[in-house]
Simulated assay, not measured.
Amino acid sequence: MILDITHDPQWLAQRELLWQAIKRETAEGLTKKELEDIRTFFFTGIPRKNSWLPPSRMLDFFPVFTVEGIAWCLRT
């Protein structure tokens, strides 16, 4: 599956470093829940139940930014 990489420890470590930069740029004006919705999607590619994150913003945070990954995200 396209999101299998999200379980790789090395990928997760790199993603955590990237998340710190994204968090600094994104957190202003967001609630903790909104930021956690982004974080969860950023690491898993699966939105949380009742997430406020609109589909138009999901591509900004999708964890597998390849042609195949984006196509999968748009389909699902």
Rank of each mutant, 00 (worst) to 15 (best):
I46S: 08
P9W: 03
W72H: 14
L35A: 08
A27W: 07
W72N: 10
P55N: 12
L35H: 05
L18D: 15
L74E: 15
M1T: 12
L30H: 09
G29H: 08
M1S: 14
W52F: 14
D37Y: 02
Q20A: 14
G69C: 07
K33H: 04
V64L: 03
I70C: 06
L59W: 07
A27N: 10
L59Y: 10
W11T: 05
W72C: 06
E34R: 08
E34A: 11
T31G: 12
T66Q: 09
W11Q: 04
R39L: 03
C73K: 04
P55Q: 08
L30P: 01
W11G: 02
P55E: 09
L17K: 13
I46P: 02
L59N: 09
A27S: 14
T44V: 10
V67D: 13
I2Q: 08
C73H: 08
K33V: 06
E28V: 11
F61P: 01
P55G: 04
H7L: 10
W11C: 04
E28H: 11
S51N: 01
A21H: 12
Q20N: 12
V67Y: 07
T40H: 15
L59V: 14
T26H: 07
M1K: 11
E34T: 02
A13I: 00
W52Y: 15
A27K: 14
F65A: 10
W11V: 04
V64N: 02
E16F: 06
T6D: 06
T76V: 15
E68W: 06
K23F: 11
G69Q: 03
S51E: 00
W52T: 11
A21Q: 15
E25D: 14
Q10L: 09
P9C: 01
E16D: 14
G69R: 00
M58A: 03
L18E: 15
R24N: 12
Q10G: 02
L3C: 05
R75M: 12
E34L: 04
G69L: 03
T40K: 07
F43S: 03
T26M: 09
D60Q: 10
S51M: 00
I5C: 06
S56P: 01
K33Y: 00
R57P: 00
I38P: 00
L59G: 12
K32E: 15
T6H: 06
I38C: 04
R48K: 15
T76K: 14
T66R: 06
P9L: 05
I38Q: 01
F62S: 04
T40Y: 13
E25P: 02
T44A: 10
A21S: 14
C73E: 12
G29C: 10
T66D: 08
L12Q: 13
M1F: 04
R75E: 15
R57A: 12
T66E: 08
S51T: 06
D4W: 08
S51V: 00
R15F: 06
A71N: 13
Q20I: 09
P63Y: 03
Q10T: 13
A71M: 12
P55T: 05
I46L: 11
I38H: 02
P54A: 04
F42Y: 11
T40C: 09
P9A: 05
I22F: 10
V67E: 13
Q14R: 11
